[in-house]
Amino acid sequence: MRDTRWHQERSPWFVNGRPVPPILFDDRAGDHGWSAKYNGWIRYGSAKIVQALVSELLGSYAEPHEILVLTPFRAQRALIRAMFKHDSLRAVRISTVHRAQGTECSIVVFDPVNAGGTFLNCDDGKRLINVALSRAKAHAAVVVNRTDLNNRWLREMHARARERWHTASDFAKPFRVGMPAS
């Protein structure tokens, strides 16, 4: 309680004089699929959103060491790493949730890829989601699609986040990135 540095690292960031919500959802992720190239589950649409979000953060609000990108699937981690080979994106850490245990970062971007599937819809999945989101000191951004919100834990967090922070003044705007044309 007396550690001012600990509190400072976990306090909300302010953009244009307003606090950014601690947890934000971007629900434009698209569909997941099996990739022979990456030998696992990937979701190209969410990887593009993660890339755009991190690029926006690096250009305006954060340094590479303040951002951690997490996903439960090695194939998605490989896809995102391939997309992050340019400029300052190279310096951003990208990891699976399992390897990130014990790590903390100011901003965590979590891409569950297939949260509606059986892998993340059991007690172990709940723990994995908890590990992913609890790595964030100040803010977590979760990239989902409608199927991911079939996951009861993500659905509940999404509902609470929308109820609390999605207002007419749109506090989430700095994290709601525009997507380049494909």
Rank of each mutant, 00 (worst) to 15 (best):
R2A: 12
D3R: 14
R5T: 10
W6Y: 15
S11E: 05
P12K: 03
W13P: 01
F14S: 08
V15K: 04
R18C: 07
I23R: 14
F25I: 03
A29V: 00
G30S: 07
Y38E: 00
G40S: 05
G40Y: 03
W41Q: 03
I42G: 06
I42C: 06
G45V: 08
V50S: 07
Q51R: 15
A52S: 15
V54T: 09
E56Q: 15
L58F: 02
L58P: 00
G59A: 08
P64Q: 05
P64R: 04
P64H: 09
Q76R: 08
R77Q: 07
A78L: 12
A78D: 13
L79R: 12
M83C: 10
F84R: 11
I94V: 15
I94M: 05
S95E: 14
V97W: 00
R99A: 15
A100S: 10
C105K: 11
S106A: 15
S106T: 13
I107P: 07
F110A: 06
D111G: 04
V113C: 09
G117N: 06
G117E: 02
F119Y: 12
N121I: 05
D123A: 10
K126W: 08
N130W: 08
N130T: 09
N130L: 06
A132L: 02
S134G: 02
R135H: 01
K137G: 11
A138F: 00
A140E: 00
A141W: 09
V144M: 05
R146T: 01
N150Q: 14
W153F: 13
W153G: 02
L154G: 05
R155G: 06
M157G: 01
M157F: 08
A161Y: 03
E163T: 14
R164I: 14
T167I: 06
A168H: 07
F171L: 15
A172K: 14
K173N: 06
R176F: 06
